[in-house]
Simulated scan of single mutants.
Amino acid sequence: MNKEQHRTLSQGSTITVIGLGPMGQAITRTLLAAGHPVTVWNRTADRAEGVVADGATLAATPGEAVEASDLVLLSLTDYQAMYDILDSTAASLAGRTLVNLSSDTPDRTREAASWAAGRGAAFLSGGVMVPAPMVGTEAAHVYYSGPGQVMESHGAVLALLGAPKHLGEDPGLAQMMYQAQLTVFLTTLSALMHATAMLGTAGMKAREALPELLSSADSLGAILRAGEEHPGAALDAGEHPGDLSTITMMGATSDHIVETSTALGLDLALPLAVRAHYRRAIEDGHGSDNWTRIIDGIRAPR
């Protein structure tokens, strides 16, 4: 691919969006609002009605959608959907850039990058880190990975969706970050619901419990950064000083959470998983270390 094949798209250049779930629709409307003609395609054509009413052009086939633009954005269920839709358009992919914003594993993303390269297309993977209604707002950001030159060429357009954060050349990096972020997100949501259920057994309504619980969640970042040094630096150095909170102390707390949840008849999947991290560290002789020591067992499960 030469630079001309990956030229920067100026305002007014047509962009293709394939996949019109809530995210795909939000992406389409954001691009339309910025002055770009947008060609769209979706397996279920009636999902396109809203964005077509807003000014998008509905392609009759995936091939027609691909041929309409040099830049093709995909917002699909997974990467297999990309193959299912675009396999028939292989002859049209050469010289174009595919930006896949779908969720899947890092390994499947790397395979997809090779698949695209074999058809003469450039490839970026991306992870949109906000819900659909926030796309295009100042609060939005999107992780990307893949060739830096390709990212640079299309950075101005991609910035319309949210602040772009390019993680590096490895196409799997954006998916790795996306999955890591969602690990925190989904686990936190489960913890909030477990805690809300726990308080509900004592008669506290969710409308009363959630503000208190969310306040605790909001303060987590400040708590972790309370020391003079960023906690990541100690982790990178393999240091786990137990001067403020130890594995033994946190492990005892996890025991109490399991006991309370058992007595209340709640599901134990989450509290047992948390307790297992601390018990493993204690068994390995790290009871006096900081709670961060649990990362060892996570990195090397038995």
Results as ranks from 00 to 15, higher is better:
residue 2 N to A: 08
residue 7 R to G: 15
residue 8 T to D: 12
residue 10 S to G: 15
residue 13 S to C: 14
residue 13 S to L: 08
residue 17 V to K: 03
residue 18 I to V: 11
residue 27 I to R: 01
residue 33 A to Y: 05
residue 38 V to P: 00
residue 39 T to D: 05
residue 42 N to D: 08
residue 46 D to I: 14
residue 49 E to M: 11
residue 52 V to G: 07
residue 54 D to P: 02
residue 56 A to N: 05
residue 56 A to K: 02
residue 56 A to C: 07
residue 60 A to W: 15
residue 62 P to M: 02
residue 62 P to W: 03
residue 65 A to C: 04
residue 66 V to C: 10
residue 68 A to Y: 06
residue 69 S to W: 04
residue 72 V to E: 00
residue 74 L to D: 04
residue 76 L to A: 02
residue 80 Q to E: 15
residue 80 Q to S: 11
residue 81 A to D: 10
residue 84 D to C: 04
residue 84 D to G: 02
residue 85 I to A: 02
residue 86 L to W: 06
residue 87 D to E: 15
residue 93 L to H: 04
residue 94 A to Y: 05
residue 97 T to G: 01
residue 99 V to R: 00
residue 102 S to G: 14
residue 103 S to I: 09
residue 103 S to V: 07
residue 106 P to W: 01
residue 108 R to W: 01
residue 109 T to K: 07
residue 110 R to I: 10
residue 110 R to D: 10
residue 112 A to M: 11
residue 112 A to V: 12
residue 118 G to D: 10
residue 123 F to M: 09
residue 125 S to D: 12
residue 125 S to M: 13
residue 126 G to Q: 03
residue 128 V to Y: 01
residue 132 A to S: 09
residue 136 G to K: 02
residue 153 S to L: 05
residue 153 S to E: 02
residue 154 H to F: 07
residue 157 V to K: 00
residue 158 L to H: 01
residue 160 L to S: 02
residue 161 L to I: 15
residue 162 G to A: 05
residue 163 A to R: 14
residue 165 K to H: 10
residue 169 E to S: 10
residue 170 D to H: 13
residue 170 D to W: 13
residue 172 G to W: 02
residue 173 L to Y: 02
residue 176 M to N: 08
residue 180 A to V: 06
residue 185 F to P: 14
residue 187 T to K: 05
residue 198 M to A: 12
residue 202 A to I: 06
residue 209 A to V: 08
residue 212 E to G: 12
residue 217 A to Q: 07
residue 218 D to P: 08
residue 221 G to R: 15
residue 222 A to L: 08
residue 223 I to E: 14
residue 223 I to Y: 11
residue 229 E to L: 11
residue 235 L to M: 13
residue 246 T to M: 03
residue 247 I to T: 05
residue 247 I to N: 01
residue 252 A to M: 10
residue 253 T to L: 14
residue 256 H to Q: 13
residue 258 V to F: 00
residue 260 T to A: 14
residue 261 S to M: 06
residue 264 L to W: 03
residue 265 G to P: 03
residue 265 G to D: 04
residue 265 G to C: 06
residue 266 L to P: 02
residue 273 A to P: 06
residue 276 A to K: 05
residue 280 R to W: 03
residue 280 R to F: 03
residue 281 A to C: 11
residue 285 G to T: 01
residue 285 G to H: 01
residue 291 W to C: 14
residue 293 R to M: 09
residue 297 G to N: 02
residue 302 R to F: 11
